[in-house]
Amino acid sequence: MNAVKSIMLRREMGIFVAIIVFCIIVGLIKPRFLALDNLRVIMLFVPLIMIAAMGEMLVIIARHVDLSVGSSLGFAAMMTALMFKTYPDVPLVLGFAVAIGIGAVLGFINGLTVIVFRLPAIIVTLGTLYLYRGLTFIASGAKQIDRQYIPGPLKAMSANAPNYWLPWIVVIAVAVVLLTYWFANHSRLGRQVYALGSNPSAAPLRGIPVTAVTLTVFSISGALAGLAGIMYASRWGFVNPSNTGWGFEFQVIAAVVIGGVSINGGVGSVLGVVLGVLLLGCVSAALPLLGIPGTVQSAIYGLVIIVALVIDQSVRERGIQALTTARGART
């Protein structure tokens, strides 16, 4: 009984219920929504956001924010695609390594600027958002890398693998989620991320290596954006300097804040973010089925961010209130 109660009281429960209710409502209007085909649509939409959201979650838990994920994704994707174009025989593994490596470097630059000059991450990453986007244009000469230059095996990873029902990019996303879960909950560095975000001024006093932790979360965020970059090339089969990853940061941040990660740092779980991403995936799969034009999506993301922030704030304030009024009432 207690176990059931503690599950019901979890913060993630609300999002889970929201997903179920949403699916039932849309399913009643359009039964096609619950078909297996549509599940595949969601499954192909979700992995990119899922991977980037894992990194963004860590950054936000550390009480920072990374606005440059979309541009990092674009730059990493472009550099990898350029490599495949010039050296078509390069093994795929190297492509992944390059994308992840470039992303990590971009993230490291963000973290370094934040930590060395003590600047708010949001302004720094607003700057690098445009900087990395500009670099993508310069690197590519403002030209798109077309389908024929993206290696076939890479594109195949987004199709159904012959032996498994799951496309490869879903498998990769699941692996990233599991790794992040381990990192956030069972590694020393991961716990230090939470400690830093809960109280940035107390953290150094407790001997937490603030510089190392900050650099780590930004590098992870960048690296995962890079991984999402090569998967973008796999999923869509092209890399465009202006489209690839444009506005991606809003989807990612929306997913993370829906997932119950507090923008004030220190609070958030992998499970919550996974559910947040799934909710976004359901919404974006439902819109075309319901005949709502794609132009509404951006407004919905914005609204969703605002609503999630408001809920987060009210939960926090109620928590503080409960603490102050309940003190002494209990023995």
């Binding site: 924010v65 708010p120 923008i263 407004a299 914005g302 605002i306």
Partner: peptide, 23 residues
């Protein structure tokens, strides 16, 4: 009034307002 951090709250309205314009 809701005491949200202005940086992140106005990122929300940035997306939302432009989204409404697009709608």
């Amino acid at each position: 009034y809701l005491r949200l951090p202005s940086l992140i709250a106005t990122i929300g309205t940035l997306t939302f307002y432009r989204g409404l314009a697009q709608v």
